[in-house]
């Protein structure tokens, strides 16, 4: 075999076009967000301002842009990992209850930290690093449950998977409520903001670095493993027969997808639909090969949160800016139903 004329590797011309397009969208959204801000008008009211701001505000905006882009990319990659793992187009951190699991992990650690003694030490350790260990454990627990159920039942059809996710999510949600019930009432309000999802405007730099580094690392891993991911699109037996290490690959997908979901949850809370829709947008715009899909998903996920965050800078219905989770759900909900209908039509 000669190395000269191998089959054309993806991304194709269409894939490259899609990636460039998505990159431009992400860049434009980031640019808009950089120029869009909130200021005070002559009457002392809040208003939308356009333009480059002073240094302090610039820092806030850049930090917000990095947080939004990183969290969006992390959610997208996590969704892609779960969709590949479960061979199911509706899989995503939020649909599968992985976001709830991460939230439960966080709550559990907070509760432990309040107990005192050894429990407090464990809680404190889990809460180190903005709670990434706690939420990662919760996220991995949730995805492992879904994965084991899927194995036992010989796979899910898309709707069955959604049902399983709803139940997982509700169970962890109940766990969160139980823990809230156990902590002093004053603490209960703390999580309301987190549950709504928010993009931190001044996230600690180390957290942005960890999250950005993780997204970058997973992107590179996905890029390098793209031909394996492509080949794993075959049926299980066929994929094994051509030398795809399916079991190892799935372990990695589970761990990386769960880890990224946890990081996204720590950074922005349980934001819905971005993890579901970003891989679809990536696939639509870059074609079938995972080399393109991985990059496309990163860019699509980043774009989605950047656009949502830019839009909320200009929408104030009197109660301050709209929470970003409201925007993503308003757009993502109908899109999800569309995917559901499309799946039914194909079946």
């Amino acid at each position: 075999m000669s190395g000269s004329s191998r089959t054309p590797r993806i991304p194709s011309a269409r894939g490259r076009g899609g990636i460039v397009g998505l990159f431009l969208i992400a860049a434009i959204a980031a640019g808009c967000r950089l120029l869009l801000g909130r200021g005070i008008d002559a009457d002392g009211g809040a208003t939308t301002v356009v333009g480059l701001p002073e240094a302090v505000l610039l820092e806030i905006r850049v930090s917000t842009i990095l947080a939004a882009a990183t969290a969006g990319a992390a959610l997208g990659l996590s969704g892609l990992a779960f969709q590949t793992l479960l061979r199911n187009p509706l899989a995503s951190p939020w649909v599968l209850g992985v976001s709830s699991g991460a939230g439960f992990g966080l709550m559990l650690a907070m509760w432990l930290a309040r107990l005192g003694g050894g429990a407090a030490m464990v809680g404190g350790m889990l809460l180190a690093g903005a709670g990434i260990p706690a939420s990662a454990i919760g996220a991995l627990l949730a995805i492992s449950i879904v994965w084991m159920l899927s194995r036992r039942l010989g796979g899910f059809d898309p709707v069955g998977l959604v049902l399983c996710g709803v139940v997982t999510s509700a169970t962890f949600g109940a766990g969160i409520m139980l823990l809230q019930h156990l902590v002093p009432s004053g603490v209960r309000g703390d999580l309301v903001g987190w549950m709504m999802g928010r993009i931190p405007e001044l996230a600690p730099r180390w957290l942005l670095a960890v999250a950005g580094g993780s997204v970058g690392l997973v992107t590179i891993i996905g890029w390098r493993a793209s031909s394996m991911l492509d080949a794993a699109s075959l049926g299980d037996d066929e994929a094994r027969s051509i030398g795809v290490p399916l079991e190892a690959m799935r372990r990695w997908l589970l761990v990386l997808g769960g880890g990224l979901a946890a990081i996204a949850v720590v950074l922005v809370g349980p934001i819905a639909f971005v993890g579901l829709l970003a891989p679809h947008a990536g696939r639509r715009l870059t074609g079938a090969g995972h080399r393109g899909v991985v990059l496309g998903t990163v860019l699509a996920g980043a774009s989605m949160l950047l656009v949502a965050d830019a839009v909320r800078q200009v929408v104030d219905l009197g109660g301050g800016r709209l929470p970003v989770g409201v925007l993503t759900a308003l757009v993502g909900g109908p899109a999800f139903l569309g995917l559901l209908l499309q799946g039914r039509g194909r079946a």
Binding site: R38, A46, R198
Partner: peptide
């Protein structure tokens, strides 16, 4: 007056 903080946190720029 402008809203500077709601359930999802502080509006830093405002």
């Amino acid at each position: 007056l402008p809203v500077v903080g709601a359930l999802d946190g502080v509006d830093a720029e405002v």
